[in-house]
């Protein structure tokens, strides 16, 4: 399943890049994030709680940054599963930052996600809609955090 989207944030591109790679930023902006821990320069462990339809999941997974081209492009891969075994998930994501020249940075993402287990009962529509909700909240939180700095 391909999930893609983009959002715009008002911030200098370098500052945004740095923030996006900080576990603390991700932990406080990503809705449902219970833990984001930096294992090494390229590896992160995360525990995220989400509700998809009527199903509550607690996903524990590890992400590895596979390509870093600061401050415009990064790629990561990850794999994890729900702690109560409701589903298993693998993902490959590419993120691009583009300076729009007016103080805005456009962040585009493209994720190839494979899900098995109970979560997979939901088709693309439900998962994409969930991703859109998460994106909206993440953008809002990120923008507020940037303002506060």
């Amino acid at each position: 399943m391909l999930i893609e989207g983009n959002f715009t944030v008002k911030a200098p591109i370098q500052k945004l890049w740095d923030m996006l790679l900080e576990p603390e930023t991700l932990g406080s902006c990503l809705p449902g994030a219970e833990k984001i821990e930096k294992i090494d320069d390229k590896t992160y462990d995360a525990v995220i709680k989400q509700k998809v339809g009527p199903i509550k999941v607690k996903l524990s997974f590890r992400n590895r940054l596979t390509k870093i081209e600061a401050p415009t492009h990064l790629e990561l891969e990850g794999e994890g599963e729900d702690v109560t075994k409701l589903g298993h998930m693998k993902q490959k994501t590419a993120v691009d930052l583009k300076d729009m020249g007016n103080g805005d940075v456009q962040v585009s993402y493209k994720s190839d996600v494979a899900i098995v287990g109970k979560l997979a009962m939901f088709g693309d529509r439900v998962m994409k809609s969930k991703a859109k909700d998460v994106e909206k909240e993440f953008t809002k939180n990120l923008q507020e955090k940037l303002k506060a700095l």
Partner: peptide, 13 residues
């Protein structure tokens, strides 16, 4: 009828 719009649409499919 479902708990949200997306699931209702998914169920139609």
């Amino acid at each position: 009828a479902a708990i949200d719009k997306d699931i209702a649409e998914e169920a139609c499919d």
